Simulated assay, not measured.
Amino acid sequence: MTWRQEGAAPEGRMDTPGYVILSRLGAQLRATQVLAHNLANADTPGFQAQRPVFAQHLQTPPDGPRGASTAYSIDRATWRQATPGPLTTTGNPLDVALRGEGFFAVETPGGEERYTRAGRFGLSPDGRLVDAEGNAALDARGTPIVIGPGDTRIEIQGDGTIRSENGPLGQLRVVRFEAPQKLRAVGDRLFAAEEAPQPVERPGVVQGAVEGSNVRPVLEMVRMTEEVREFQLATSFAEREGERLQTAVERILRRRG
C-alpha cells in the first residue's frame, strides 16, 4: 500500500470554495491516472489492479459557527485488488502459475530478492530459469535454479518441485506475507517487501499456464467514464468559482475608485 503524506488545508475564507474544488480536482486526476495504469496493464501477466483511497480533512474555522467545517479531499493510499487473474494454458513447460495465495521469488541482477505472480519463465544463456525481465527464479534455499543442456523433459509438480529425466533440479520458492498490501510495486510485475516472507507449505503450482492480469477492461472503462464526468463537473465548478472571484474583485475596485 502506497501512503501519501497528509497536507494541511489552507486557511482562506473567500477562497475556501476554490481550495475545496482544487483538492477535488487533484483526487479526480489521481483516480483517472490509476485507472489508466490499470488499462495499460490489462494484458500484463500477474498484474493486480490498483484502487486509490481518499479521505476527508475537516477544517473548522476558529471564529466560525459551531459545528461548521470545510471538507478537503486527501489522497491517502493505493491498494491492490488481490483477486487472482485468469489462468491461460500456454503449453510451455517452463511457464507456471499459482492457484491460490503466494508469490514466486526471483533475484534481480543487483542481488535483491523480489516477488511476482507472473510465472512466464524461460532459460538464460547460462541455463538459469529467468522471468521475462531476466530475473533468476529462486529455489527453496534462495539460490537460482539452473537447468542443464541435458535436461530436456521438464516436469514441475504442484509443490513447485522441478524434475527432469536426470532427476530433481530444485523446488520453486513460493512465499506469502502477513500484510501483502504493504508490498511495494517495482514496475508492473515485481514487488519489494519490508517484512520477512514466509514459505507457502502447499503451493498450488500449475505447469504450462500463466496467470493473466485481473484487470477487467470493460469495468475499468466504465469507471474511467464516471471519473472523467466527475472531473468535468469539478472543472466547470472551478471555472464558475474563478468568475465569481473575478466579479468580486472588480466590484471592490469600482468601490475604491
Rank of each mutant, 00 (worst) to 15 (best):
A82W: 13
G204Y: 07
A97N: 00
G102A: 02
P197F: 01
W79S: 09
P65E: 03
V205Q: 00
V206L: 01
T108M: 12
A234C: 04
L35K: 01
A9H: 05
G26Y: 00
R256N: 06
G67Q: 02
S69A: 15
V174I: 09
D131V: 07
K182S: 12
V218T: 13
R202E: 12
E250R: 12
F121P: 01
A27E: 10
G64E: 10
R66L: 13
G102I: 00
G204T: 11
V34R: 00
E211I: 06
E226P: 05
D15A: 15
Q246Y: 06
P144T: 05
T88Y: 09
I154Q: 06
L219Q: 13
E178S: 13
P65K: 00
T88E: 15
R251E: 15
R216K: 13
W3K: 15
L39F: 08
D188E: 14
I162E: 04
R117K: 08
E243K: 13
G7M: 14
A137P: 07
S69F: 15
G257Q: 12
A77S: 14
W79R: 11
P203R: 00
M1N: 12
V206F: 01
E11C: 06
R189C: 01
N92D: 14
L138A: 04
E107M: 14
E230A: 15
Y19M: 06
R251V: 13
V106Q: 02
S69V: 13
L94Y: 09
A196P: 03
Q59P: 03
N41S: 09
D188C: 08
G134L: 10
A97P: 09
T247R: 14
F103W: 05
L253Q: 11
L233K: 11
G119F: 01
A8T: 09
R13H: 13
V34T: 13
E201M: 07
R141P: 04
D75T: 10
L35Y: 02
I21T: 10
V218C: 07
Q181Y: 08
L25Y: 01
P199F: 01
E194G: 14
Q81G: 07
Q59A: 12
T143W: 08
I21H: 01
L183P: 03
L98R: 02
G212V: 03
G150Y: 04
T116F: 02
L245N: 05
D139I: 03
I154R: 08
R229C: 10
R4E: 09
Q232H: 03
G85I: 05
G158R: 12
Q198N: 08
Q181H: 14
G12Y: 03
F104C: 05
D43L: 06
R141K: 14
A140K: 04
D75H: 12
P168I: 07
M1P: 11
E113G: 07
A192E: 11
S69Q: 11
G46Y: 04
R4Q: 12
G134Q: 10
S73T: 12
R66F: 09
T16I: 04
E165L: 11
N135D: 09
L123W: 05
